[in-house]
Structure formats: structure tokens, C-alpha cells
Design a protein around this nucleic acid. Structure first.
Lengths: 129, 129
DNA sequence: GGAGATTTTGACAATCATTTTCATTTTCTC
DNA sequence: GAGAAAATGAAAATGATTGTCAAAATCTCC
């Protein structure tokens, strides 16, 4: 039974940036979906576990999810204003992380890399008057 | 008045890896310090605000702090087992992040980069028998 | 088609790090 | 010292997330 999970996945796919569980829940309820918050959390976790969605932690400690287009390992360039997200590859970074780790005798190296900025739309000067 | 803050900072400096506020608080109390949890939180935040300690978020959403040797921008190679931490520079990564951002029209670019692994001590085969 | 087993769901309570509140204490400032 | 301003901390509040458990949905085998 994946109806609920699919519904959650769909909601996420319709979103542009990263969304929190509470966001997803609110949006689904808004559109009339009959689903509980607990189920949204479980679906999101399940999706994250099987790699179908990416997870990030906000500065406030909230987990946010995104249904990314790319299945491959990639990173995110996220607008800190509107949340607009671009998936980016960074082979150089992958190699760097691996090298840094093994240089220091570390094994089973993983890394987290996220880039934040203000996207062009958001950095456009606010209309005055 | 910075007595408390200094005490917190000192405790952190004596630690090898990243420590949570609760950790720091427990350790200080253990050593007889008379300080409240609230104050530890406040001191840690203040130290982080003025860049005297680095902050990370664990997978569990806990904030962990570290008094780093380097004042300059740097990243961390953290042992996921024992927490042993190495401060590493990554000029190539800085440039990459900047380039990725501006390529997509983003400004005011920041980034988070952390590398995790198992350090040599921890990956040594466990003694059997 | 149906009985019973299994899984999923979701309302509610519990957890837990962190933050607020607010009265008390400490530390200036003059 | 007196009074103002800042720091402290105990306890309550917050808020995301997780656990509980009974009800509902679904599957399985006859």
C-alpha cells in the first residue's frame, strides 16, 4: 500500500524547493487530502530512506524534503529567500572530500555540501513607491 | 561580565570534538561548576555569534559546538564514531561554491561543507577474544 | 466471498532539545 | 553605597518529531 506515500511524494514533486513535513501536511489538507501528520512524517522518512527524496536540515533544526529530479549524487544551490533550488553536480568536491579524508587516515568517507545564496529574482531591487 | 562564558569556552577547548550544550552543561556540573543549563545555552550562542566557536547540526537535530584552533574559514573532518575532528581548509571548494552560485545568478553565496568518516583509531579491527 | 492475519493509519500523548519568562542576584555607574 | 542595567537560572512553554495503540484498510488462503 503506497497510496499515502505516493500522495506525499506527489505533493513534494509539485513544490519548487525544500518543504518541511508540516508544510507538506498543511498543503495536503488544504487540497482536501485526508491524511494525518504522523503518516506524512512516516511517508517522508520512508521516501528519504529509499533515496526518493533528499533531506536537509534548516538552521532552525527542521527537516526539509525535496523530490529531486536527479537520482544521482548531487548537491543543492538554495535561495535563502524563496527556497528556489538548483541541483548541481560537483565532481571536484567529491574528489576533494575523498582526498581530505584519506589524507588523514579516515575511511568510509561521506560529506554534506550545500550552497546558499540569493537568487536573481530575489536580489532584484525591491520596487520603491 | 564574561566569567560564565569563559568557563563554557574553556570546557569546550578541553574537548576534542563537537559537544552539545547538554554535554557541556553535564561536564561542567560534573567538575563542580555552578551554572545553569540556560546560561550554557546562552554562552554557547554568544560564542557562536562572535565566531569563537563553530556550530554543527547532528543528524538528530542537536546543535554541537567546538572551539576551533583556526580563526579562519575552514571545514571539518569528523569521525562519526568517536567525534575526533580535524580542521581542514578547502580553497578549491570555496571557489567551486562561489562559481556554482554565480553561474546560476545567485549572490551573497555561503556554503556548508562537512566531511565525515571513520578515523584510523576507530577503524582498527576490534580485538576478538 | 469471507475469516482471520497483517499492515497502515492517525488522534493523542510523550519526548526532548531549545527558548521564554520572570524574579533574583550580580555587576556596573555615579 | 543607591539605583540602574545586565546576567543568571529554575521552571514553564514551545515546537518538531516520535511512540502508542486502537480502529480501519488490505492481504491471504480457503
Amino acid at each position: 500500500m503506497t497510496t499515502r506515500r505516493d500522495a506525499v511524494h506527489d505533493t513534494l514533486r509539485r513544490s519548487e524547493g525544500f518543504r518541511s513535513a508540516q508544510d507538506v501536511y498543511a498543503e495536503m489538507r488544504l487540497h482536501g487530502a485526508k491524511i494525518g501528520l504522523t503518516t506524512v512524517y512516516r511517508a517522508l522518512q520512508a521516501l528519504a530512506d529509499c533515496g526518493q527524496v533528499d533531506v536537509l536540515r534548516t538552521d532552525e533544526g527542521e527537516s526539509v524534503y525535496r523530490a529531486c529530479a536527479s537520482d544521482d549524487h548531487h548537491h543543492h544551490l538554495v535561495c535563502r529567500r524563496c527556497g528556489h533550488t538548483v541541483e548541481v553536480a560537483g565532481p571536484a568536491v567529491e574528489r576533494w572530500a575523498e582526498a581530505v579524508g584519506s589524507d588523514h587516515g579516515f575511511t568510509e568517507i561521506t560529506h554534506t555540501v550545500e550552497v546558499f545564496g540569493t537568487c536573481s529574482s530575489c536580489s532584484a531591487p525591491a520596487r520603491v513607491g
